[in-house]
Structure formats: C-alpha cells, structure tokens
Amino acid sequence: MHENSRPVSHQPGRPPRAVLLDCDTGIDDALALLYLCSQPQVELVAVTSTPGNVDADQVAANNLALLELCGRPEVPVAIGARKPLEVPLVTTPETHGPQGIGYAELPAARRAPEARDAVDLWVEAARARPGELTALITAPLTNFALALRAEPRLPELLAGVVIMGGAYYYQGNTTPTAEWNTHVDPHAAAEVFAAFAGQPEDRLPTVCALETTERIEMHPGHLAALAEAAGCSGPELVLPDQPEGQRSTASNRLVRHVSDMLRFYFEFHRHYDQGYVAHIHDYFAATVAAGTARYAARTAAVHVETRAPRLMGTTVADYRGLWEEPPSARIVSANHPDEAFAELVASLGALARLVG
C-alpha cells in the first residue's frame, strides 16, 4: 500500500505543481477549480471542458467565469468532445442546476474559449513539457481518451494523472453499481485504464472513487467557517429550515457565489435522503493533484463494464491479481476529511480575501 504521508500545511514552501484540468463544471468541479486557483504553488496550464454535468459550451462558460472571478484570465480554456465516445450524452440539471453551478449567477466572462481543440492543447502541452504536468480529470474521461488516441505516449509524458471516478465494491450514485463520471462515458474510461495497464506504479493514474470522495461531506458549518475565514461582515448561514433557493447576501462575492452553489447542492442531497450535506468529490481529487492531501492507495487492474445494460459504467478492481492482468490504477483507499476541510476553509478563505 502506498502512503502519501506529507502532512497538510498552510505554510509556504509547498512543491510547485503544473496542472492540466479537465472538468464538466459542476458544483464540485467549481470548488476544485477555485481551490487550484487558491494555491500559489499550482500553475494552471489549461482548463479543458468535457460534457457531463452540463453540455460542453456551458462547461466552458462556467470555467471562464470562475477563472475571471479568481483574477486568472491568462489560463486557457478549451472545448474538446461534445458527446461521449459511443453513447448519448446525459446531463444532470437536477444535481447541479440548469447551468451547472446551482443558484449562483456568475457574470459572463469577457473572453471566449480557445479556438483550438482541448485534445490538441493537452497533447501540445505534454510534448512541450515532458515529465512536468499533472493531469486532473474530474469529468467523464472522453477528452482524455481522445488525447491518448492522439498521443499514446501520454502515460510517459505526464508527471502524474488523478481521476475522480468509479466506485469499487461500493454503491454507485447513478445506478446501483455505477458512479456518474464513468457512467456518462464508460467506453472512454475503459480505453484510459487499458492505456495505463502495465505502466510502472508511479505512472498509474491515482483514482479518487466514491468510497473515499463521499467521505468529503460538506455541512453548513464548513460554509460558515469559510465566510469567517474570508472576513465576511456577518455570518453565512445556509440552513435546512430556510426557504429553498434563498440567495446569499455575503459581503464577499466569492463566498456569495460559493454559498449559492452549495445551497443547491445541499438541497439536492436532502431530496435524495442523504441529509442537508454536499459530497464535494472533485475538491478532494484537486487536493491530491495539488499534492496537499494525505491518502493511501492500492494498485489494481480495473475493468469498466461497457456491454451489460444494467451494469454500464460499473468499475471493478482486481486487487488480488486473480485476473493475472497488470495493474492499471492506484485507487485511493483512505483519506482524511477533517484535514481536507481545514485546507479548504483556509485556502479558499485566503483567495476570497484577495479577490473581494
């Protein structure tokens, strides 16, 4: 079992990371992007947009608006695929809202996405900076599968890969056995794991699956702590007995937008009998990519089901080598939610103070 044992710290001196982010923004994707923008040691090389929670154009619009909110207009935003490899696109407005960001109403960005395709951008960046870039995918794996088709050497060219997706011997959140990202494009996921099979352990993708990302369970108290860390003039109370759809009046605009996103997400989880909470899966994956999380991981050969209708997108991990196939992933097996939320509050709070 691998253990990433570097403790979480809010002090300067964290090793630099250059990150390529592919997302389908999405409330938890938005928090992941905001977190990466809050980390001074993280260089965001590009943010690419995959259809999933919403369509690709809306994903790109969300990404551009969030980067502008953070004062990061220099980060390229590109669109790649507009649908999964082989199955029809299914989006999830009931989970993330019609625009993907809950009740938040972000000002439209003053720039458009890059003219070049997201896949070309990733391949060019990886070739130009071999061994330097960490890929973080918090979306269906469509764009990444297409990038691997275009450049099969990506497993060797990238410094690391972090994927949010899958559920291993754990209840799915889309079907009884399948997680959302993998279910949206199971064929892409199958291609990605096949491409990494047999790579050295340190080059295998680190997979943040539901059994650990659902432990990153946000409560209204975390949002109140974020507002306090951001220096808001009053408490930020998002509570279950308040009217659904109530909008934030926080004095800090970043906190206001985050609060409006999360209220929608809290309400969604309550509608599905999970309580007034929010599972912020993609934020945890971002901390792994940024090198700020402690976690343990186990290697396994991964199978993604692409044929059986009721099991489409189901992921199975062979931890014991019973298939006699080489490992294709390192699946996170343990994490530390209290540390993750202390990190989120401190880091986003500092960013909120900076952008106002």
Rank of each mutant, 00 (worst) to 15 (best):
residue 3 E to P: 11
residue 4 N to W: 11
residue 5 S to W: 13
residue 7 P to A: 00
residue 9 S to F: 09
residue 11 Q to T: 14
residue 16 P to D: 04
residue 24 D to Q: 12
residue 27 I to H: 08
residue 29 D to H: 14
residue 32 A to S: 05
residue 45 V to M: 10
residue 51 P to Q: 07
residue 56 A to Y: 04
residue 67 L to C: 03
residue 75 V to G: 03
residue 78 A to P: 01
residue 94 E to F: 01
residue 95 T to Y: 10
residue 99 Q to L: 15
residue 102 G to I: 05
residue 105 E to Q: 15
residue 106 L to R: 07
residue 108 A to N: 10
residue 109 A to C: 06
residue 120 D to S: 08
residue 121 L to W: 00
residue 122 W to E: 07
residue 127 R to M: 09
residue 130 P to D: 04
residue 131 G to Q: 06
residue 134 T to E: 02
residue 142 T to Y: 02
residue 147 A to K: 02
residue 158 L to W: 04
residue 158 L to G: 03
residue 165 G to N: 05
residue 166 G to Y: 01
residue 170 Y to Q: 12
residue 171 Q to I: 12
residue 174 T to V: 14
residue 178 A to I: 01
residue 186 P to A: 03
residue 187 H to A: 03
residue 188 A to E: 04
residue 189 A to M: 00
residue 195 A to N: 00
residue 198 G to A: 08
residue 198 G to C: 00
residue 201 E to I: 10
residue 202 D to K: 13
residue 208 C to T: 02
residue 212 T to D: 08
residue 213 T to S: 02
residue 215 R to Q: 15
residue 219 H to V: 06
residue 224 A to I: 00
residue 225 A to L: 07
residue 225 A to K: 01
residue 227 A to E: 05
residue 247 R to L: 14
residue 261 M to Y: 01
residue 263 R to E: 09
residue 267 E to H: 06
residue 268 F to K: 11
residue 269 H to F: 15
residue 269 H to R: 11
residue 270 R to L: 13
residue 272 Y to T: 14
residue 273 D to E: 15
residue 277 V to D: 09
residue 280 I to G: 12
residue 280 I to P: 11
residue 284 F to L: 07
residue 291 G to Y: 00
residue 294 R to N: 09
residue 299 T to N: 11
residue 300 A to Y: 04
residue 301 A to M: 11
residue 305 E to I: 03
residue 311 L to S: 13
residue 312 M to R: 01
residue 313 G to R: 10
residue 328 S to I: 06
residue 329 A to N: 03
residue 329 A to L: 11
residue 338 D to W: 11
residue 340 A to W: 08
residue 342 A to R: 15
residue 343 E to R: 14
residue 344 L to D: 09
residue 345 V to D: 02
residue 354 L to Y: 13
residue 355 V to H: 05
